[in-house]
Structure formats: C-alpha cells, structure tokens
Amino acid sequence: MADPALQITTLTKRFGTLTAVDAIDLTVAQGEFVTLLGPSGCGKTTTLNMIAGFVPPDAGSIRLQGRPVESLPPFRRDLGLVFQDYALFPHMTAAENVGFGLRMRRLPREETVRRVAEALDLVQMSGLGERRPSQLSGGQRQRVALARALVIRPAMLLLDEPLSNLDLKLREEMRGEISALQRRLAIATVFVTHDQGEALTMSDRIAVMRAGRIEQIGTPTDIYERPATRFVAGFIGTANMIEDTDGVTVIRPERLRLSSAEHAPPGTRHWPVRVEHVVYIGPRLELRLRATDGTRLQAEMVNDGTAAWSAGDTATAWFRAEDAWAIRTP
C-alpha cells in the first residue's frame, strides 16, 4: 500500500484561549509504532482524541489509510482503541466484550465465536472468556481490552496510556507483550504515554510533544542521543547540560567518566570534581558530582565491582567529544 496508515497535517485544537494542539504534522507508516510522548497537558491525548473522532479539530486534516476522516463519527473510523482504564463493559463477560465490535458489524454467529476465541487466544486469555471484568486482574483486563480492539482488524491501533494503571513488574511484562503482538500483526499503532521508558523500549519512532507542538520526532536513538532541544534532552532520561556561549552541550550521565588521576586523557573536556553523594540503584550507581567551579554533574556507572567511589572523594570527570551532543541556540 502506498498510503501511510495515518497522515496528520497542521492539526489544531483550541479550548477557549488555550491552543491544546498547535498545527502538528505526523505520519505513521504501515506497521509502524509511533509514540506521542510528553508531560500532561502537552496535547498528546487531545491529538489521540481527534484521531479517534471524539474531539473535532479546529483546523487541519487527518487521513487514515489515505481516506480523509475529519468529518466521520468515531464509529465509522475503523480504529482499535485501548483506554487507560481499559473501559471494559462491566455488564458483559470478557468474551462478550471482545465480541462487541463484531456484533456491531453484524458478522455471522459462527464467525464471531471463532474470532473471539482466536483473539482471546492471541492475548493468552483462552479459558477466561466467561469471566466478568470485575473478576479479572489488572493485567487480564488489559489483555481483554487489547483483544477487543484487535478482533475487529482495525485500520490502526490507538493506545492511550494503557500501562499506567499496572504495577511496575506487570507494566514491564506488558510492554514486551504489546510490542511483540504489534510487530507480529504489523499493525500501525499510535501510543500515548508520559513514560519515557515505555517510549524508548517500544517505539519505532517517538514524537516528543510540549505545549501543543511536536518538539522532535525521531527514532529512540535520535531522541535520546541527538535531542533537538533542551526540553527533549531534559525530558527523556537525565542529561548534564553544559552551558556554552552558543547553546548547550548535552552529556548523558553514563557517558561521563570518572578517573582518580588528576589528568584526563588528551583531547577531552574535563573538570576536577568532588563526589557529593552516591545513589545505590543495585545494578548501577548514580554519582552526584560538583566541579570546583560550582557546576553540578551526574555520572552513572555499572556496579561491576570496579567502581569504588564514596562521598567526599575527589576525582576528574571527563568525556569524549563523540559522546556529547551540542544543541545550538539560533
């Protein structure tokens, strides 16, 4: 297919005097997983709601599989949605929930039954179809919601912070499962989250949003290693931002090295520092450093038994030019 799964052009939404979404452009290719990442109020959910058809845009166009949909109601857009609270129908069983979209499409009974069973199987929920949502755990509800969205074979999948109601362990497990499922079905997906970890691990591309605009769009590597703005550098991961005359130099804590010698390798930038605090993470150590000129820095290292730093130590912090990234302010 030549058309992208989703093409958004100059999409805009105003609420009173607030411009929630400000003329954004976004293209999602067939089978691509694109994340809208940003703090709350950045416009990511409003964007998703406009794609889904719940919020009418003030300007701009939305094309799904090449077809303009701005004037179509939600029930004609052929999208699979998973909500933050799953929004399972409490008065129906898991199987009835999954079959809802097929019943609305008036599919023959046998086909509905077969496809519901397949969908439940896909999310490893076979055998639990007769349970009510209230009898399911958070993770199981999540799976049913996913099956319900996928069973209608939608043009694309929209996920609205589907992991934020799960506990940490389950969240990481579901990340992997959703990613694997999405790749297997090769279904174009827009995923909304404020969690940078989810964005980095699951996405083909990430659109970082702030105040209604897309600050940067790119692969996780682009976003993390070559941030376009200070906001992106600071929002995704931790960054040492060293002020220069014409912008900032971004150096990630894991690329900042520490040596006990007074001199760093030639050709590197370096500071004499004092270790102020060591945060013990387990597999990693986080070191809060202060340079003699007052600059605060953060270094992170693998806790492999060779690093023996403690608060009060003096050291030299340095980095290689190729490990840093410069953001030039125009």
């Binding site: 939600p74 029930f75 052929d78 699979g80 609270d85 929004a87 409490p90 609305m104 969205a149 209608i152």
Partner: peptide
Amino acid sequence: LNPNLERAAMSLGAGRVRTFLAV
C-alpha cells in the same frame, strides 16, 4: 457512568443509538 465506556462502544462501531441501548 465512565464516559470511556461509551467511547469504547463507538470506537467498536456502535452508532449513537446502539451505544445508548447496549451500554
């Protein structure tokens, strides 16, 4: 009533009347 339930029904292809009657 959780407003997402009606939204979910609509996203699954239920028109306004069917959303009302079924959810």
